[in-house]
């Protein structure tokens, strides 16, 4: 099962830093939309990385069982 890691305010919102997910679509865009809805992340902006590489075209990316997906928001503090 792919592992999903959440960073910053997203980990707080989701209430966990990582989870393993079962997926019925291998399309990354669909998968991200499902997770957004599941965890009420609609109000947040973030980038998606798979296996530590940031992906700009989510719809063209096919997720594999061994993939690690990261949700990356911008941090603000300093």
């Amino acid at each position: 099962m792919p592992k999903v890691k959440y960073f910053g305010i997203l980990a707080e919102t989701v209430n966990q830093a990582e989870e393993e997910i079962s997926f019925d679509s291998e399309n990354l865009e669909v998968l991200v939309a499902q997770l957004k809805e599941k965890h009420s992340l609609e109000a947040h902006d973030f980038q998606i990385a798979v296996n530590r590489k940031i992906i700009s075209d989510l719809s063209a990316f096919k997720v594999k069982d061994s993939d690690e997906i990261a949700f990356l928001p911008a941090f603000a503090g300093g």
């Binding site: 910053g8 109000a43 928001p73 911008a74 941090f75 503090g77």
Partner: peptide, 17 residues
């Protein structure tokens, strides 16, 4: 890295540090 400006990021004064 971040093509769109975040609507939800919070500063240290609110998030704590």
């Amino acid at each position: 890295l971040f093509p769109t400006q975040s609507r939800s990021a919070i500063s240290c004064s609110e998030a704590g540090v």
